[in-house]
Design a protein around this nucleic acid. Structure first.
Lengths: 251, 251
DNA sequence: CTTGACCTTGCACGATATTGCACGAAAGAT
DNA sequence: ATCTTTCGTGCAATATCGTGCAAGGTCAAG
């Protein structure tokens, strides 16, 4: 591979991913890390990127911003995820439901957290594949494409054999009267089953889910221990849930 | 060879490959590197290309884009994946092993293919989550982060209950004597187990895996029905495999 | 046919670039 | 506070480059 080819590729990757890692490039292209570091140094002195320990970032933060946001999605969900991640104690076994909010949670688990994550969401498994200390247990089953989680009897059997400290449950609605609801009958049943295997159930709910209700009930509010919600002036929406005895976590 | 002929060819190659290497051209055409360098210098001053240490790149970097990807290996894998996808018949149940090559295979399954894919790779499950007609069955278990697949007793149990028409097996080496090999003992055992549950085993091997051998044996060549390999002049590498009775598929 | 101008090619040689390694320093991680 | 990873620099080996030069080859005018 030609030197200038390498440099051009580095810039492409940087634009696409918003970052490059020296070691990864070195392994991918079969050259020494020194060579990559030299390339990065020179590109940095050309002003096209910014060196950081372990690799490089785009020079202009504007480019990084886009790629970054692309990766992390909406800020609200990322925020909820961060709050949820903070609820997990070292050594715990937690079940992570599917959904983008929980992917954000997985992404923001502290790098040094030693815990076990059980999930039937392949997306979360992929996300945690690069976490250094968290053990991941995948629940298999038939892939329900709408939610991108494993479901069916195989999943139910696997879940029945596991007990967890906390279940981060995904919902499409959380209403003072109807409790937690979702849009699929079988999914509701599976969530109910998981909740039974968990010491406590935690719900991360973005603003639009509070006060909403979907077709199929999962659990009454009494079955939910903690609600993680966006902070905001409209804390009114949280009042009925607080009254129902839920522990509320906000930013 | 005439000078202008050479220059025309250089431009052609540049367009096709996205780069030229002075030494390679000199050897291919039996002229000195000096001559090639002179050609490149002149073409550069014509603005046709851009000289770099070791050869030349296209003047406009856009052209290089596709060809660049070729060399980073992902195109080769995409190609293998496409060939592999073509081996799956409607209605079949196939097991897809982990690995980037198989992710490419999953990505290139025909949009109208009705089949069932069993996998212990969450990456492949995510990839197929948006396929309209393929059913996906996820094999659960402990996530082996190095390969990003589910492993362990839970996986073995689930696999023991499934029979598939074909197993697309990932390997790190495929050698005429040692057969299919991989770098982890437990992984080798699991692959062996899956192969037992499959009517036939298919291996997609990039060029560098042919003739290579890793620490742990999975199967002898006799256990493999079909080998999908990159096409190329160095078909010599394929000879021992063909002699061993494997059905060979190339582009 | 011969001659001389012009071009192309290969070679020699010093200059410059690139690469990998070693070793101590600095930055993160535990 | 200790350990590991990453960084920077110097160094040596190798590859590539540029230039000058000589050996041919082509072609047209003489």
């Amino acid at each position: 591979m030609l030197t200038s080819e390498r440099k051009a590729l580095i810039q492409q990757i940087l634009q696409r991913d918003g970052r490059v890692v020296a070691k990864a490039l070195s392994q991918a292209w079969g050259v020494s890390e020194d060579t990559i570091r030299r390339d990065l140094r020179e590109l940095a002195s050309d002003g096209v990127l910014q060196r950081v320990h372990g690799g490089a970032l785009p020079a202009s933060p504007a480019i990084a911003d886009f790629a970054q946001r692309e990766r992390t999605g909406s800020a609200a969900k990322a925020n909820l995820g961060r709050l949820g991640a903070g609820l997990i104690r070292p050594g715990q076994i937690v079940f992570l439901d599917g959904g983008t909010t929980h992917v954000h949670l997985a992404r923001q688990l502290p790098r040094d957290l030693k815990a076990t994550v059980v999930t039937h969401s392949p997306s979360i498994a992929v996300e945690l594949a690069h976490h250094p200390t968290v053990d991941v247990e995948i629940v298999g089953g038939r892939l329900f494409k709408h939610s991108v989680v494993a479901m069916g009897s195989a999943s139910a059997e696997a879940i029945a054999r596991i007990r967890v400290d906390a279940y981060f449950m995904g919902v499409t609605g959380l209403h003072p009267d109807t409790g937690a609801t979702t849009g699929d009958h079988e999914e509701a049943a599976l969530k109910r089953l998981i909740a039974r295997q968990a010491a406590e159930t935690i719900v991360l709910a973005t603003r639009e889910k509070l006060g909403a209700a979907s077709a199929y009930g999962i659990l009454p509010l009494a079955g939910i221990a903690t609600l993680v919600a966006e902070a905001g002036r409209d804390d009114d929406r949280l009042v009925p849930f607080r009254a129902a005895g839920l522990s509320i976590v906000t930013a």
